[in-house]
Write a protein that binds this DNA or RNA. Structure first.
Lengths: 206, 206, 206, 206
DNA sequence: AATGAATGAGTGTTCATTCAT
DNA sequence: CATGAATGAACACTCATTCAT
């Protein structure tokens, strides 16, 4: 038998889990506030009750937290997205479901780091996070499938996918910045823009 | 009179101007290649015949070149944009003109730094550069004007502006990444998406 | 009587001893492989079934294991050396016995850590380990004794001792690096060099 | 023409040279006192009037100073050694010349770092510095040549070279540690040991 | 005793910025 | 004005050691 250990099984494991989450949460905020490059490991652990050393007990590098964050986001969002494509009977309902799912996701999580406004400085960076890339592929696949089945015209698939995501991201960001957060309205705007363009957009009172 | 003498800038003035432009050009490239954070002042002046010290004669900090770049971009693009709104007779021609102007601008300048892919890492950064903000305001004003004049339905102006710009930026980036660079096709895609949504998008052969 | 009971060490005692030895063995290897400075405590305990914490139950610091290792080596080698001086009837037989004993010792233990090649870097370090010092004193005493008894000329004792040890160490290292390890030949070389210099060295075929 | 610069040609260059040498001197001492691994860049520059940053203006890494030191030592010693082999008429005069040259070299330079006693800690490290290796090859070549010409018996060349260098190093270290430093006596000891072994060693009074 | 997560000073190195020349 | 060496705070990361369990 191996040595008897102080195995109080729950406590230790729980702390580890909590610490890991604390680091991820802090990193989310910090990356969101100042961008990945500008953020330092110390910035992250400063928002934590841990030490620099502890950081490296949980992640091998700054890069790794970033990937964990991305994986995490992608991992949780992709199935939601996928479920939509199963449920959807026509193209419109798929788009609406997907956009809606994304906005709900945004609203529920405070996925601050996905939007990341950085007041003092600013640099245009295409945001090809692993997460975004994965979602892109997912959306692309579904749209491609829809087109193949004749439910939508044969258009430039990459352009369509990219545009749809860009609009959804942009409107998502702005939705989150408004008070109150109106998922319904934002969803409607995006869906109508994609499906019918300007003429079909919801009217608002002046 | 002495006025004339000063209209022809002295050699000194000219050199200063050239150096400033050399730094800006180098910075544009470098920021484009590796992103603002990763780029070092030395990276910039290395592409120049100047010295580190000289850099600080022209700009007080790395930040300042970035801002100058942004201002510069905006300053050159806004009049182009503005000219469109004067020329345009209806909404479609305005949109087409504007998008077209932006894509020409992209293609002519190798405005790499506005797209800035950074190989090893990647981080979502919304790009609220002064330039983008200025362009946003410009576009917003024109669209507002168009709506006011009854040429377009009364829709959510911020959302519309943001969406239009997002799509234009996204498709612009992808247009630049394709070979050959097809301004025509990209413009058509964006205009049709905004004006008529998916059904009106140009068909492509499978 | 109770004496007997304590002569057979308890299980507890045995485990402690084993752990201590396990650490020493691992440390020997690790110090041998990468040098003292480069070796980390974790490198040592990794080659053990123990934990970092346990390490500090047995040794107060990394330094302390090093000293224990040195003491240990010296403690085991000195009696062997001493036995030679008793057995020896003349100077040559003493020298031959001592050198032979050292080379056997080298070959039997894989006393890698006493030779310690460090792959990437390299730095001259004289090796005044406690062990070496102790052996030095032992050899010095015997040589002094031999000279006093008129069996060898009155020469500079420190120089002679130092030279003899240096040659033995150097040839020992090289003997261990050759395949097959030839204790006989190495011993003969050292003994003849010390006793008769170059002219008396064993010939080899071209 | 290029821009006029503040070229006061001597001053600047001189300072650079001095700083480089200051770093090398400091590094020699520090590596000597505590070994390469244990020595930190900060330890080195502390013995200097420079800053951490300046260190990296002169050397790309800690490794690089080490190599510069080794190269430097080897570069200066090898020609001296080589000159001996030309001057020498027989084997004894070569050996004596070479050993003598090494001891003069030791005495003239305070080549502290080549001897490197480290009081607090200690770790046997074979000292295969580039310098030592180069010298080894040099000595080996000459000895080989001597043997080929029949001036010395056909013995194990590697063993002979290694032994000779080991003895010279060891006695050199001890010579330097004694007061007064007696190059004559040390040389004589080494030469006689190598050429005739113990019986031919110089006698000393009890 | 044993465990292994936590600690934080310390490491080599970079880089924006300053300043003597 | 130009130059480029000097500066030193800051960075990502390591590791000997401690300590709650």
């Amino acid at each position: 038998m191996s040595q008897v250990a102080y195995l109080t099984p729950g406590k230790r494991e729980q702390t580890k889990l909590n610490n890991r989450l604390a680091i991820l949460d802090a990193a989310r905020e910090v990356f969101g506030d100042m961008g990945f490059e500008a953020a330092t490991v110390r910035d992250i652990i400063r928002r934590t009750s841990l030490s620099v050393g502890a950081f490296y007990n949980y992640f091998r590098s700054k890069e790794e937290v970033y990937e964990a964050l991305a994986d995490d986001g992608a991992r949780r969002f992709r199935p939601i997205l996928h479920a939509q494509s199963a449920k959807a009977t026509d193209f419109e309902s798929y788009i609406r479901g997907a956009v809606r799912a994304y906005f709900d996701f945004l609203a529920s999580e405070n996925e601050a780091w996905m939007r990341a406004p950085r007041p003092p400085e600013a640099m245009p960076q295409t945001r090809n996070t692993p997460e975004i890339l994965a979602v892109f592929e997912e959306v692309r696949a579904v749209l491609g499938n829809v087109i193949e089945r004749g439910l939508a015209p044969k258009v430039d698939l990459d352009f369509l996918t990219a545009s749809s995501i860009a609009v959804a991201r942009e409107i998502g960001d702005r939705m989150m910045a408004r008070r109150p957060v109106d998922v319904e309205a934002a969803t409607e705007f995006v869906v109508r823009l994609i499906l019918g363009g300007l003429p079909s957009l919801p009217r608002v009172e002046p």
